[in-house]
Amino acid sequence: MEVVILQGSKQIGQLVADAIEALLRRKPTAVLGLATGSSPLPVYDELAARHQRDGLDFSNAHAFALDEYVGLDHGHPESYREVIRREFTSRVNIAEGNVHTPDGAAADLPAACSAYEEAMRAAGGVDLQLLGVGTDGHIGFNEPGSSLASRTRIKTLIEQTRRDNARFFGSLAEVPHHVVTQGLGTILEARHVVLIATGAQKAPAVRDFVEGPVAAICPASVLQFHPHATILVDEAAASSLKLADFYRHTYDHKPAWQGL
């Protein structure tokens, strides 16, 4: 696990965009794992700018979303299918048919979960997975207590997560109680995982999953098992890390050829 501490979200967005641009130029058919929430927005803004300014090409790429609410219509403005379209995929030239989200409106949700896993396998697996992290350490919608080997499945949201997401809805009552999410075992199969965390409210979670034990109570801690996990945090989110100075020293002296 590599921890990179930067000044703010703009610098983080640029660095992640550099990694994605390098991936696309090396492998135009790359499979991207997309997250929602506020953490990846600077990345999406930077990628859209590079597409418009420099012609960064997404035409042969594929994308798979991490999760989706259960029970929202596909056109609902807060469905993750719509959020990803609005925040990113409509701003670049990725083919609509190459953008996949779990089907939270399926009549047979377990079958839809299995189909989503198969679609990722058929596409060759995720090359780079973007992640945020919740204040309780969840990634995707794998809440505390999730199996570290879990696959795409239905999950019940804890009330803290519903409260955290209520700002996107008219009220807490409108936030669904259930979601479909990639599992922790599914996320671990991505070739490169890039997690972004900013703000002081994320500092305890960052401390727990980076420097604490691997445990189901902090789902993001499973990334300690990943062979290529990059954790990008701002100074506020890094404020509780005991080894922050070491992480800064390591990154400052990292060989340029290593990349992210």
Results as ranks from 00 to 15, higher is better:
residue 234 D to A: 03
residue 233 V to R: 05
residue 100 H to F: 09
residue 8 G to H: 13
residue 169 F to D: 15
residue 94 I to A: 14
residue 19 A to S: 10
residue 195 L to E: 02
residue 11 Q to T: 09
residue 82 E to I: 07
residue 121 R to I: 12
residue 220 A to P: 00
residue 65 A to R: 04
residue 41 L to P: 07
residue 89 T to F: 09
residue 164 D to K: 07
residue 6 L to M: 14
residue 113 C to I: 05
residue 114 S to L: 01
residue 12 I to M: 14
residue 110 P to H: 00
residue 60 N to G: 09
residue 70 V to S: 04
residue 113 C to D: 05
residue 8 G to W: 15
residue 236 A to M: 09
residue 2 E to N: 05
residue 121 R to K: 08
residue 101 T to P: 03
residue 229 A to Q: 01
residue 207 R to N: 05
residue 131 L to E: 00
residue 141 F to C: 01
residue 101 T to E: 06
residue 82 E to Y: 02
residue 104 G to R: 02
residue 72 L to V: 06
residue 140 G to N: 02
residue 162 R to M: 10
residue 29 T to Q: 14
residue 170 G to L: 12
residue 250 T to G: 11
residue 61 A to I: 15
residue 43 V to F: 12
residue 206 V to T: 07
residue 174 E to D: 12
residue 90 S to Y: 02
residue 259 G to H: 07
residue 137 G to N: 10
residue 13 G to P: 04
residue 142 N to W: 02
residue 42 P to H: 09
residue 214 V to E: 10
residue 219 P to N: 03
residue 26 R to C: 08
residue 70 V to L: 02
residue 196 I to T: 04
residue 57 D to N: 12
residue 212 G to I: 01
residue 69 Y to A: 01
residue 28 P to I: 06
residue 184 L to W: 04
residue 81 R to I: 08
residue 248 R to E: 07
residue 69 Y to G: 00
residue 119 A to Q: 05
residue 154 I to P: 06
residue 35 A to G: 00
residue 62 H to W: 14
residue 125 G to P: 12
residue 216 A to H: 04
residue 229 A to T: 00
residue 188 L to T: 00
residue 78 E to R: 05
residue 153 R to C: 06
residue 98 N to W: 03
residue 198 T to I: 15
residue 137 G to Y: 03
residue 252 D to P: 00
residue 110 P to C: 01
residue 153 R to S: 11
residue 218 C to F: 01
residue 55 G to F: 15
residue 38 S to V: 11
residue 203 A to T: 04
residue 159 E to Y: 14
residue 118 E to F: 11
residue 238 A to M: 07
residue 156 T to F: 14
residue 259 G to T: 11
residue 241 L to H: 10
residue 22 A to L: 12
residue 256 A to T: 14
residue 77 P to Y: 09
residue 232 L to Q: 03
residue 237 A to F: 02
residue 120 M to T: 06
residue 115 A to W: 01
residue 245 D to S: 10
residue 197 A to D: 04
residue 112 A to N: 09
residue 224 Q to W: 03
residue 199 G to Q: 10
residue 240 S to H: 10
residue 247 Y to P: 02
residue 100 H to S: 04
residue 80 Y to E: 07
residue 235 E to Q: 03
residue 141 F to E: 01
residue 32 L to F: 02
residue 183 G to Y: 05
residue 124 G to L: 02
residue 163 R to T: 11
residue 55 G to C: 11
residue 53 R to K: 13
residue 9 S to D: 08
residue 8 G to T: 12
residue 194 V to P: 01
residue 246 F to T: 14
residue 67 D to V: 03
residue 48 A to M: 09
residue 96 E to A: 13
residue 120 M to F: 05
residue 128 L to Y: 04
